[in-house]
C-alpha cells in the first residue's frame, strides 16, 4: 500500500530545547491519521528538532495534512511560550 504514497515531504521544526521537541512530538503522536490509505504522517525527534514526515497519494492530501499539523504546532508553541518553566508562577 505504501507504494502508492509516492508524494513525500519532510518538515523540520527546531525548538529551544530537546525537551520541547519531545513534548511537541508526544502531543502530536496520539491522534490517528484519518484516511490512512491516502496519507501517512510520522513524527520523530532529532535532538531539538521535530521531524514531520508526510507521505500521501497526491500533493493535495499532503497540503491539507501539513496545514493541520502546522495549526497544531502553533498551539503547542504558544503553550510553551506562555507556560514553560512557569509552573510556580501565579499569573497576574
Amino acid at each position: 500500500m505504501s507504494e502508492t504514497l509516492n508524494h513525500k515531504l519532510v518538515l523540520r521544526i527546531p525548538f529551544e530545547t530537546n525537551k520541547q521537541s519531545e513534548i511537541a512530538c508526544n502531543s502530536l503522536n496520539p491522534d490517528p491519521i484519518l484516511k490512512s490509505r491516502e496519507l501517512d504522517v510520522e513524527f520523530e525527534i532529532d535532538k531539538n528538532t521535530l521531524v514531520c514526515k508526510f507521505s500521501g497519494t497526491s500533493d493535495r492530501v499532503i497540503r491539507v495534512a501539513i496545514s493541520n499539523v502546522i495549526d497544531n504546532i502553533k498551539t503547542i508553541i504558544e503553550c510553551m511560550d506562555e507556560f514553560d518553566e512557569k509552573k510556580e508562577v501565579i499569573f497576574t
Binding site: 513534548i23 508526544n26 498551539t75 503547542i76 503553550c79 509552573k87
Partner: peptide
C-alpha cells in the same frame, strides 16, 4: 482535537 493538543502540551510541561 484543537483543545486536547493544548491539554497534552501543558500536562507535559508541568508534569
Amino acid at each position: 482535537q484543537s483543545v486536547v493538543i493544548a491539554a497534552r502540551t501543558l500536562s507535559q510541561l508541568w508534569d
